[in-house]
């Protein structure tokens, strides 16, 4: 067993109604300790109302080398953006 605590990624929800955002990472022995550490490291200035932690090793990530095939095909498909509609002023900010 490694003597190093595992790495956890921390997600904090700033206020009710918003989604959790990734704020950083930290080390902790287990999930409960990770939440306590996240509380102390990332919510000292009233940043959050909810904390999620997930072990960094449990996250599957896309590979930077694949960015061509993954993302570039969307570049010339402007019709996927809803920019061809006239939005009535009454709708307000979209």
């Amino acid at each position: 067993m490694s003597s190093e605590w595992p790495l956890w990624e921390v997600f904090v929800r700033g206020q009710h109604g918003l989604s959790h955002r990734h704020v950083g990472s930290l080390h902790a022995a287990d999930a409960e300790a990770a939440i306590r550490n996240a509380r102390d490291v990332y919510t000292r200035r009233n940043e959050g109302v909810s904390i999620w932690v997930v072990e960094a090793s449990a996250i599957a990530a896309s590979s930077p080398e694949e960015k061509g095939p993954l993302y570039e095909p969307a570049n010339d498909k402007v019709y996927r953006h809803p920019t061809f509609y006239d939005i009535p002023d009454d709708v307000g900010a979209m």
Partner: peptide, 11 residues
């Protein structure tokens, strides 16, 4: 002994 504990103790 660890950054996380350091901040928690300071809090």
């Amino acid at each position: 002994p660890a950054l996380e504990e350091d901040i928690a103790l300071a809090n």
